[in-house]
């Protein structure tokens, strides 16, 4: 859950991040802030650098230069596990869950609890009963409704899957949740459920979100702040109250 140990409201600062892939400069110096308890949307056309940036914040890629400052301290994430340890969780569009595993196994993927003491831990003997109980309780506390923690994800609808993926990230992400196109694969009703869930988690749990989306309606609805990228550069940071959907689109396309 949201950590309120720090008095300042600044949670994450991305400072002058660049990323080169060989000769290609994917990110050319990106700077923006994310404050505690707000939903920040990261928007931009295909190839604007959104995914690269998110992968840097979540420890998949290393920046060529620039800093990531979390809670006032510079952090380095050499791998996803390091980002997880710092309380940064990412829900990837197509890579959120393992379809063949059940809900509890997914929620605890990479963070299994074991039984039989030290020997059990060395052998990695899963304590599934404990993990199922904790999963049911965690999802319940987030008001996420799923049929059963023992249901294979393969048998669930797109909305249920996204709810489980966000629930999983919420269970572990004490600081920041990054959502990659959370509604792209969903129908109208399911999209509404996921958006309502993000708003509820922000308002009730004080959770902070960085959301990548193509869908301007969704962005305009849930975001407090919109960061626009264009061709690897930071094009604009807009407060929702002070902007319009047309202005956002103008920044994305380069008309402005």
């Amino acid at each position: 859950m949201a950590d309120s140990g720090d008095l300042t409201s600044l949670l994450l600062r991305v400072e002058a991040i660049t990323k080169n892939f060989g000769a290609v400069q994917a990110l050319k110096g990106i700077t923006f802030d994310v404050e505690r308890g707000e939903v920040v949307a990261l928007v931009g056309d295909n190839g604007a650098g959104k995914s690269t940036l998110v992968k840097i914040i979540s420890g998949v890629y290393q920046p060529t230069s620039g800093k990531i400052i979390l809670n006032g301290r510079e952090v380095h994430f050499p791998n996803p596990a390091a980002a997880h340890a710092a309380g940064v969780e990412t829900v990837y569009q197509h890579l959120a869950l393992i379809e063949e595993l059940d809900v509890a196994d997914n929620v605890y993927l990479g963070r299994e609890t074991t039984k039989y003491g030290v020997i059990g831990r060395m052998m990695g003997v899963l304590d599934r009963r404990q993990m199922r109980r904790a999963t049911a309780a965690a999802l319940e506390s987030l008001h996420i409704k799923i049929p059963a923690p023992t249901m294979p994800v393969r048998m669930m609808s797109g909305g249920q899957r996204q709810a489980v993926a966000i629930g999983r990230a919420m269970t572990w992400g004490r600081q920041l949740l990054i959502l990659d196109e959370p509604t792209a694969a969903l129908g109208v009703e399911e999209t509404e459920q996921v958006l309502a869930m993000i708003e509820r988690l922000r308002d009730e749990a004080g959770m902070t979100f960085l959301v990548i989306s193509h869908n301007m309606q969704d962005v305009y609805r849930i975001a407090d702040k919109i960061v626009v990228l264009r061709q690897g550069r930071h094009a604009a940071t807009l407060r929702k109250q002070e902007t319009t959907m047309e202005e956002i689109v103008a920044y994305i396309t380069g008309a402005k």
Partner: peptide, 10 residues
Amino acid sequence: GSEETTRLAG
């Protein structure tokens, strides 16, 4: 099931 998802789970 998904090698990449497993890797991203750390």
